[in-house]
Write a protein that binds this DNA or RNA. Sequence first.
DNA 1: CTGCATCCCCGGCGATACTG
DNA 2: CAGTATCGCCGGGGATGCAG
Lengths: 127, 127
Amino acid sequence: MTEQVSRMPADADVTRADSLAREIYAGVANKWALLVINTLEDRTLRFNELRTAVDGISHKMLTQTLRGLERDGVVDRTVYATVPPRVDYRLTEAGRALRDTVNGMCAWTRRYLGEIEAARHRYDTRD
Amino acid sequence: MTEQVSRMPADADVTRADSLAREIYAGVANKWALLVINTLEDRTLRFNELRTAVDGISHKMLTQTLRGLERDGVVDRTVYATVPPRVDYRLTEAGRALRDTVNGMCAWTRRYLGEIEAARHRYDTRD
DNA sequence: CTGCATCCCCGGCGATACTG
DNA sequence: CAGTATCGCCGGGGATGCAG
């Protein structure tokens, strides 16, 4: 009996975990999040330092991206009660682990840059 | 003299390569592209098989994503002149290399699923 | 079955202005 | 300096229909 009633919740948990993973994956798999993670590397940066370093990102998108990463425990946010205020951002342990995989994507881009360019030219001039 | 005239183009090339890398990075760093790459793995799949497997992706987005990946030489597209038509998609060598790094992100999600969930709860119930 | 075009709407994102 | 809120637009992307 216990086996029967416990089966359904177990399956439901698997489904929930899957959809959660999907959601996390989708949240992290976006341009700005990955660029921010890449930029942070091992450094501790302030809001405007990040804003300058990421280049192309707007004030709003940076805030939004940082909130998401902070919520997921990827970046750590430290507020200093000074005036003017100062806020430091750095990667958490989970964030550094993620950064390692993100670096792999960067390496891939560099490694295949030439091939991709060639493939594009072939594709664009086909026929 | 040759050194002087060759300097400017060299710098320009670096800049161009950087922006190209950025563009490729941005193109690949999106939810649907990564999910398609993950789904393809080592298999060869037809359009509708992919459509079903990726779940949540629309007809239009799948077409669009596949075109982009095909153009960048990440996926290989094979058309059979049969009726009804049949089109097979598979990862190229570059695509498989990219998949390896993408798998790293999946592994990361699984590894930190619990921590992320906890971090979210902490964030959402702070104060 | 696969792919392209069209329409249309919702929401992401930039710009701007205002608090602490 | 850092963050929040509001507004407005442009475009991503879903739905649908048609072609090969």
